[in-house]
Design a protein around this nucleic acid. Structure first.
Lengths: 181, 181
DNA sequence: GTCTATAATTTGATAGAC
DNA sequence: GTCTATCAAATTATAGAC
């Protein structure tokens, strides 16, 4: 991947995390990446929508690996795993000034009714995350999806409250009765 | 509440559910409500942001009552309650053509990094929902928040997949070990 | 591949007649 | 309270020099 492409994706990612997909303009992306409009359209002829798809695909993989690593690091105890993920998410949100730590959920909600290719890219990421998490949880795909959904919802609640506590509360609730240590 | 105000709120609600807050223009709201720009600014001098706050406050109350009624109707069995809520949500999403059944979560995510008054209105709604649900669940505020977060996340997953199944899967997972019938 | 200039449209919002 | 006309700014996208 070229340096220019990387800078565009990183800038778009950061802006989507703060303002969402529709709330971010192409001008903001060029300003933050330091590259002019022409370069963005050279690397992404499909314009903003193609940038969005690339952000979802690239960072969907990155965050999937990160969360999975955090889950595995927590060991065998399922309750401890859950607590570790949500407590970690709370810390990240608090430390980051209550910016969305991941752009996927926001892009998904904004694109669901408007852009088929963006929505499909988001669905694909959710499927990969769910399948990967299900492996850790002894094939329990239902619980894996519940975990991801609760994480996405928790990000929303934590951001508008400007507090990591909702995420920690959700982690406590989900760990309950799941072998929490 | 005047008829004009009601029509504006309903139009904005419907559009937010389909396209989100930033994805909806004032022109779309006037077209759908059948009222001109001047009327919108007469009833909402604060413009689009004030319309957004009013939508969140009004429909936050409406949907809070609806979900609470559904929860109570399911009876004493906590697992059955949870299943009823998520199965019901899945049906609503499927029947509605995979439009968001509630605009709050989307507005919350889009406003969190941009509009203080909108984010505060969303936080207020989440607090009311959580407190009301906690009463049903014997004061378990953690679990009430987890339920709401999972519902919000489930809406996102269901919409991009164009299927109610993610919501049903999440309901099964959360009901597990909670006295499901 | 990078950059500037600009086109065509849409945005939220205002003014003022009725 | 309703409605039309309009503004200034921002939007995505394109053309073409370098």
């Amino acid at each position: 991947m070229s340096d220019a492409r990387r800078r565009i994706l990183q800038a778009a990612h950061d802006l989507f995390c703060s303002y969402g997909y529709n709330g971010t303009s192409l001008k903001q992306i060029t300003a933050r990446s330091g590259l002019p409009t022409g370069s963005v359209y050279h690397h992404f002829p499909g314009g903003k929508e193609q940038v969005g798809v690339a952000v979802v695909q690239h960072f969907g993989r990155v965050y999937g690996e990160q969360v999975l690593a955090a889950v595995r690091a927590a060991g065998d105890d399922r309750g401890a795993m859950i607590r570790a993920v949500f407590d970690g998410a709370a810390s990240v949100v608090e430390f980051g000034g209550f910016v969305d730590p991941c752009p996927i959920g926001g892009v998904a909600r904004e694109s669901a009714g408007a852009s088929g290719v963006l929505a499909d890219a988001c669905d694909d990421v959710f499927r990969r995350w769910s399948d990967a998490a299900a492996e850790v949880f002894q094939g329990d795909l239902d619980f894996a999806m519940a975990l991801i959904a609760a994480l996405e919802g928790g990000f929303i609640m934590a951001r508008v409250r400007r507090s990591g506590e909702p995420l920690r509360a959700i982690g406590r609730a989900l760990a309950q009765g799941r072998g929490s240590s």
